[in-house]
Write a protein that binds this DNA or RNA. Sequence first.
DNA 1: CAAGACTGCTCAATCGATGAAGCAGAATTG
DNA 2: CAATTCTGCTTCATCGATTGAGCAGTCTTG
Lengths: 339, 339
Amino acid sequence: MKRATQAKRTTIYDLAELAGTSASAVSAVLNGNWRKRRISSQLAERITRLAEEQGYALNMQASVLRRERSKIIGMIVPKYDNRYFGSIVEQFETLARKRGLFPIVTCTRRDPELEIEAARAMLSYQVDCLIATGATDPDRIGDLCGAAGVRTVNLDLPGSCAPSVISDNFGGALELTRRVLANCEKEFGERFPLLFIGGRGTDHNTSERIRGFRAAHAEANVEVDETLILPCGYAPEKAESAMQQLAEGGPALPRGMFVNSTISLEGVMRWVRRSGHYAKGVPHLGCFDWDPFVAMLGDHIEMVRQDVPGMLHAVFEIIDSGTAEPKVVHIPPIVEKIG
Amino acid sequence: MKRATQAKRTTIYDLAELAGTSASAVSAVLNGNWRKRRISSQLAERITRLAEEQGYALNMQASVLRRERSKIIGMIVPKYDNRYFGSIVEQFETLARKRGLFPIVTCTRRDPELEIEAARAMLSYQVDCLIATGATDPDRIGDLCGAAGVRTVNLDLPGSCAPSVISDNFGGALELTRRVLANCEKEFGERFPLLFIGGRGTDHNTSERIRGFRAAHAEANVEVDETLILPCGYAPEKAESAMQQLAEGGPALPRGMFVNSTISLEGVMRWVRRSGHYAKGVPHLGCFDWDPFVAMLGDHIEMVRQDVPGMLHAVFEIIDSGTAEPKVVHIPPIVEKIG
DNA sequence: CAAGACTGCTCAATCGATGAAGCAGAATTG
DNA sequence: CAATTCTGCTTCATCGATTGAGCAGTCTTG
């Protein structure tokens, strides 16, 4: 097997010996600034060829240790179980690579402890910059990074000690609620308050969406039913049991609702199907977030799709510009309805 | 601002000076083996406290450079746009962390070039082990890693130079096809060949699934229609245009089909809805892969859910055991139908 | 009480890449 | 032809953490 011979990895010292030159020349050639270090092109070529033959691979740990910037950019993300975060991560990796940065992403499963542990780990790996996506406590992360002199950008949920890029939650929720109210009026011939379900009452996005929800009700002259505002968390099970409780409490279930994320919608739909409570007609729904299969579930669902490419462009604009002001950039989401 | 004072990061030398001791004592205390290096617990405590006060963070680059093992484990994954890969990544991170490993994941967007570039990058970062998930060319990655003395495990798609963990594609496809054939017979009172759509004809999974598809037809005494086997790729658009072409070619569209992945299903469903060709009745579907909203699309869809926890346990068992034999482990998928 | 064992540390080399400084020899200039 | 400039390298310190080797003291033991 080749493996035995190649137990040890080839280093610039090995190449230097093989080429009959110095490690510093090899380094200069392989990291591209041999021209300004006045290495002849013959030697450069010889070293390049040897490196290829020997299957040389740079040791990034050594390289980063020596350099001032690591060119590593980190992101923490709550979950990988929906299209929104999935496309955020994919876009992030693409844009990072385009800038010659090495992206490292880690998922914290909405666990506050894991979140800061992950942030600490990223700092240990010398990230130049950290994107905190949907963090429970963005400022805690911001402080950690600040102490290490590392830049942070908050995404999806805003913080107060670093720039943030978020959706226009108020605007999106306002429009989404308007549509659901209108759909209900069209079908039932009357206006009535909707149910708001999903999300955490303490997070900025949820409270802004509730504000939009209220504003749309006010506009339509419908009084909000306070018992129908249920920010029960994001997990499907939470939404499911909130629905169950609601059904047990009162006799009439809402015929229209605002569901705060596809993941909550998963629980709501499950309950709707299992409980049989909506056997005589499905409720009109509005979902803040998009999923292709939800779009196919029927014409009773309106969706708001967050503008992920727009959000990530804003993030990298902030990074490129070097701003550290804790400004919040609002990206308008897209209200769509695919049949 | 604190930032100015803290421009430079605290190192073990700084702590050593503050504690009036040596860097080597600090290192021993902070990496936990101070006991075996006979450091007194008083000193240990003093150093620990100081480290906390100063917000010390280990420099992993330096640490990894010095050690023989990096404790970094890499994974490359084709996409983040479906539940299957999403849960693979999440499970992977969880299990890696449980073992004290640092997971780094990167998405290669089904691009063969990016795939090997990503593998090279991971090697540069000194990963101890690399999981190649759904790789276009697992053996190329295997060779790269082999040359660097790094272990590889193939996941989802098998390779020939490293252990592989994959679903029992034949068995899953056999059962799924059986069910769709049975559903069709129940509704239409007759047996007829199904459509197979999605996936790459060249990949092992797709060809095994086609084999299962054929076996189920044989079992049911139905002759496979060769013009209905369309491994057109994974992207939704590919499936969409394959359906379009099929519709343009012949008059009768299949009333039953096997769709090879949720992502292909996305295209199929889009076409079914847009084209209006199935206005008088939706086709019976079988989908190799699972998605919660697909499960809600109606009772005409059967799904096979790949056993992600089972697969990842197998992966880590291989890693823990240290085997390097290119064996293929088949994990049976779960055939389910959620109403 | 001398020999050995133990305690609690420190010293210095090392991992691999980088780049400032320096040094021969060749080429150019006044 | 001496003085300067240029070319094409090499030497060496450095980044921060790790670890084998070593070294004073103190404690034990026959």
